[in-house]
Write a protein that binds this DNA or RNA. Sequence first.
DNA 1: CTTAATTAGTTTCTATATGAAACGTACAAT
DNA 2: ATTGTACGTTTCATATAGAAACTAATTAAG
Lengths: 157, 157
Amino acid sequence: MEAPPPHETCPITRLLEIVGDRWSFLMIRDVFYGVRRFDAMQKHLGISKKVLADRLRRLQQAGIFKKVPYQQRPQRFEYRLTAKGRDLFPVLLTMMRWGNRWLDEGNTHVLKLQHQHCGEIVEPELVCSLCKQPLTPAKVRAVMVPLNAHTGTTDET
Amino acid sequence: MEAPPPHETCPITRLLEIVGDRWSFLMIRDVFYGVRRFDAMQKHLGISKKVLADRLRRLQQAGIFKKVPYQQRPQRFEYRLTAKGRDLFPVLLTMMRWGNRWLDEGNTHVLKLQHQHCGEIVEPELVCSLCKQPLTPAKVRAVMVPLNAHTGTTDET
DNA sequence: CTTAATTAGTTTCTATATGAAACGTACAAT
DNA sequence: ATTGTACGTTTCATATAGAAACTAATTAAG
């Protein structure tokens, strides 16, 4: 990448305004794991109840979590991912890959991924949606495009 | 994914212990952009000098940034990415993709990626390193494996 | 020679966010 | 009637962040 695009409108800035704190990504990860209830999350993460309640509210408002009832009397809710939330999966996988590659000090076991499609323990790999080649810093340039443009080469009326 | 692996040893937890705050990822992004100096970062991000100095120290200690001199008298340094830091590129790209897809309110322009290999505006896509099929939540299971195991199917001596 | 400008911080002080613990509430079980 | 469980809120002490002033080394200007 070269040349800094405006900070305010950068999609990474906008994402981090919602989930850029110590807990949000961990909560989203936990919901992927199946840890979806207030108490379970609180115990699993060791987060304070106040901050947990606060982040749950925020992630709901952001449309990442939705609150769904799992029992009546007393009515209780758990937190599920919306489509928007589920679409953060690639972010978690790339984080996991990096953590495994660079931060394995003192571990007896590592968290790996098993791909149901091929059955193997695999690594996530980030490729170009068109030519399927790896997307490396040197091969990629960030460009600002008008919002209504298509992704194709031509641009006539 | 199903069943919560231990929180403490999760690679995502470990990553977020280093870069899980409002600024670290933005600083790393800025260094990718070419914004590598104290003042430039401070002005581009609108971060306080205290926190900036603090994060720069932390990211150096974590081996993500390195401080390299760019002039003598007075000696001045800029911050560059190490290999470990550069390897966070896929995390930034997946964040960017999500931000573009879900957070485009009130934008006239969007930050997109141009792939030098094919010349087109592309999206990053996360695929299996072995079978090259997309890695979706439903098709992936998180498993704990002993640190010395290989990724292959066989496991004889 | 003095003064201003540049770059990279540090210090100080105030505002905000976090965490721990106690409390509230709705129900179920004993 | 009391205890237990799940899901929070309130209160208060502490930690972190931000704004502004200050330091330091050096160059450039007057």
